[in-house]
Structure formats: C-alpha cells, structure tokens
C-alpha cells in the first residue's frame, strides 16, 4: 500500500505532517514524531515580533536608567555578542535537520512587510526543506480596505519568494471575501502550497478582573469542516499543493481530507492531547480502512470527493446551506 504523497515537491512517505506547535521546540519531540511515523514536521514559528520587538526590548532594558546617576552609569554587563531570537531559532532548525531524516519545514509568522522576511533566507540556509509562511493578520482598521489587505499578503509572499529557492507554503485564514480568488492570486504569486486554515485564537473576558484575556482552546474534529470544504473547492483550481489543518484528529479525518483534495494533513491538537505516538494510531487506522476498502494508494483517493469529482458539487456551495437548514428543521 502506497501512502506516499507529494507536498510542494517534497516526497512524503505519508500525508501526516506535524503542524507548527510548541512540540517542535524540543528536538527530542521531533525525533519522536519521526519514530511515530510522521512524514514531515513544520517547525514552531519564528514570529515577526520575536525578531523586532525582542531586539527593541533588549535595547531598551540594556539602556534604561543608564548614564543618569554617577554611581550606577549602567546596570548590566555588556556581552560581546547577543544571540537574538532568529539565531536561536536557526540553530534549532539546524539541530532538527541533523536529528531526523524527514523533511523539516520552517515557519515564519508575521503580518507586515519588513526586515523580518529576510529571515526566510536564513531559514533556508539553516537547512529547512521548505517554508511555511503564516500570515496572521486581524484586519481591525476600518479605514483599510480588503483589497489593500489582500495586496499585502501577496507582497509579503513575493518578498519571501524572492529570498528563497525552497518551496513556500502560505498559511491563511478563511476570512476573505473571495477566498477562491485569493487562493488563485497567491498561487499566481508563487505559493507552492496553501495551508488551510489558520485558527485565530479568540480572546475571552475575565469577569473577575474585567479584562480581556487570551484563551486557547485546542481544536476538535468538527473544526475540520471548514478546511474540508475549501480544499474540495480549490482542488484542481490551483497549482499549489493543498494542506489541511484544523481539527484533524483521527484516521477518518485524514482520509476525508485526502478525498477532498489535500496533499498533506497537519496534526497539532491531537498530538498535544493524545501524545506524539497517536500519529502511529492514525496511520494504522488509515491503512486498515484502505485495506478494508481496497484502496492501493493515497494518490488514488486524493481529490476523489473534491468539488470537481464528487457527485453533487453544489454540496460545497450555497445549496448545501439550504440542505443543512432543512435537515436542521427536520431534527426539530
């Protein structure tokens, strides 16, 4: 049985990819991922803020209060060199590459054009096999149009592509007026892969302190519906590889995504919840189902129930909404 897949030109032994999460901060975890059968790992993200804010903060704290009082002209010894955020991250990628044979995909997380995109090149130099560009942007400014925001996505992608030769995937959110068009434009701008979707962590309100607090919930399987729909729609419409992320917890989830048209399926919450070894269970489940249902390869099923190939393409469109409402009514 052939579980292999091609993701952005990377030959993966199966579609399971560990998505960017704190798990990959530890090299031992990456080794365990490989052992569990995972085919590629997306490194935890190097954040734009890490590159910019961190250096500002360091500079601020090294100089704050200095040269003010004769007895304490400074407060810290001045090291001859600093290993700032990116350096640490790059060292980590280098180490990860040495530790495992599976492809290691770097991840850059940011939202604005600027000096940080040049770290894409550094990530490539550190040995990453590909790069995932996570554009995490909440459009809060009422004076900035959707067009402008879309353009900035394309600009960031182009400047990253100009810096590297390794494949670049773009991880985006579903919040575009015309997602299919946006996907096509990203495709045209050179994206080698599209990762669907970024989950925006929604803040909460703490009634005790009357303040807004960050709140991180791990995804559940029902969160996979949104990427499932869009992968099915985009399959065949773009050259870029498609990766599914959000809510993939079981072998069934993986199979569904592949049938919708995903080239790779990304795991995060399930590894955090059930442990890295769970990936092995998913693989076993996949194999079992494929055996039982006489599938020979992943390639064979890929996109088999995409909008293009399924019996009822309208199921992925507005018609499905009506159906859903009608069935909801029946339940009531």
């Amino acid at each position: 049985m052939d579980l292999s897949t091609n993701y952005m030109g990377l030959k993966l032994k199966n579609p399971l990819v560990a998505s960017a999460s704190p798990l990959s901060e530890n090299i031992d975890n990456i080794k365990r991922m490989e052992d569990a059968g995972i085919a590629a790992v997306v490194h935890h993200s190097l954040f734009e803020e890490q590159i910019t804010r961190e250096v500002y903060e360091l500079d601020h704290h090294m100089t704050h209060g200095t040269e003010s009082f004769a007895e304490s002209l400074t407060y810290f010894p001045e090291p001859s060199d600093f290993i700032l955020g990116p350096e640490e991250y790059l060292n980590h990628i280098e180490k990860a590459k040495k530790a495992v044979k599976i492809p290691v995909i770097g991840s850059l997380n940011g939202h604005s054009g600027g000096g940080w995109v040049k770290y894409a090149k550094r990530i490539q130099e550190a040995g990453a096999d590909a790069l995932e560009l996570n554009i995490y942007f909440v459009a809060t400014d009422p004076d900035v149009s959707g067009e402008k925001i879309e353009q900035s996505y394309l600009d960031i992608l182009r400047s990253v592509k100009a810096n590297v030769t390794i494949p670049v995937a773009v991880k985006i959110s579903p919040f575009f007026s015309a997602l299919a068009n946006m996907a096509k434009r990203l495709d045209a701008a050179g994206a080698d892969g599209l990762v669907l979707f970024n989950r925006f962590y929604q803040p909460d309100i703490d009634l005790e302190t009357l303040s807004v607090v960050p709140n991180l919930f791990l995804s559940t399987s029902n969160k996979m519906r949104l990427p499932l729909r869009w992968i099915a729609i985009l399959y065949g419409e773009v050259k870029a590889s498609l990766a599914a992320t959000s809510g993939i917890h079981t072998s069934e989830d993986v199979l569904k995504m592949l049938m919708a048209g995903a080239d790779a399926t990304m795991l995060c919450a399930t590894l955090l919840k059930n442990g890295i070894g769970h990936a092995g269970e998913i693989l076993k489940g996949m194999e079992l189902w494929m055996q039982e249902n006489e599938y020979e390869s992943v390639k064979q099923m890929k996109g088999s129930i995409s909008q293009k190939s399924c019996e009822n393409p309208e199921a992925f469109e507005r018609a499905n909404y009506m159906k859903a409402l009608q069935s909801f009514g029946k339940i009531l």
Binding site: I51, T52, V55, Y56, L58, D59, M62, S80, D81, F82, L84, G115
Partner: peptide
C-alpha cells in the same frame, strides 16, 4: 548596535 540586530541599526 550591530550586535543588537539590524532593526536597531535601521
């Protein structure tokens, strides 16, 4: 400032 990063230099 070189050692504190390009951003600070810029």
């Amino acid at each position: 400032y070189g050692k504190k990063g390009d951003e600070i230099v810029k």
